[in-house]
Amino acid sequence: MTDASVLKVEGLNAFYGRAHILFDVALEVGKGEVVALLGRNGAGKSTTLKSIMGLLAEVRGTRSLDGQNLARLPSFRIAQSGLGYVPEERRIFTGLTVMENLEVGRQPPRQGAPEWTPEKLFALFPNLAEMRDRPGGRMSGGEQQMLTIARTLMGNPRAILLDEPSEGLAPVIVEQMARTIAELKREGLTVLLSEQNLYFAKELSDRAYVIEGGRIRYQCTMAELMADDAVRHAYLTI
């Protein structure tokens, strides 16, 4: 664990109505790190990310970004303070073109974070460059996944929450996605990556948290996790 943790979460509890979903989740992501949040379907990965992002009505616990307290902030303030969110369902604005989708994500440049422009993003996602004026609704799943990441990067975030970027994509697209995230990591972006695809996460992540039943069960470096069959069998394989 690094001293300069960018994103820090402690004692996170979340509720859907009367149902208690997350129990005292705690995690940290250091500057420039890619940290995986691993778990099966329904383990609480997406709920954790949404809770951090202020998208759930009932959340308790502390969350901070570069020392700034995020708890009690509405989600737009959290985004403005430099935390990007890439939703699992992608949530592309289907009636808007690629360029317009990027425009919605645009935020002013931020000190201490890479500054993104559409042109820089098109270099990273060459496919998107060829469909600037195409409506989001007429793109393939893989293209939409790239657009949703690009859209979030337009906010020049210090860190991003990336929710299952490999889900539902063809293997060749998954590989392409992995290369892109590796590229973002080289640019110095801090990433909290939620995944159930261990082999996708393995290539990219420095460390991992394993979540099950709304609780963090295990934390370790990626290498330790790959060496520990027992944990992988208990929490990750089906």
Binding site: S75, F76, A79, Y85, P87, F93, G95, L96, V104
Partner: peptide, 21 residues
Amino acid sequence: RWGTLVRAATQDREMVGALGV
């Protein structure tokens, strides 16, 4: 830009918020 944001919010206002609007 304002119009683009309005159109985006017409489809998914929560997501517009999560993007900092």
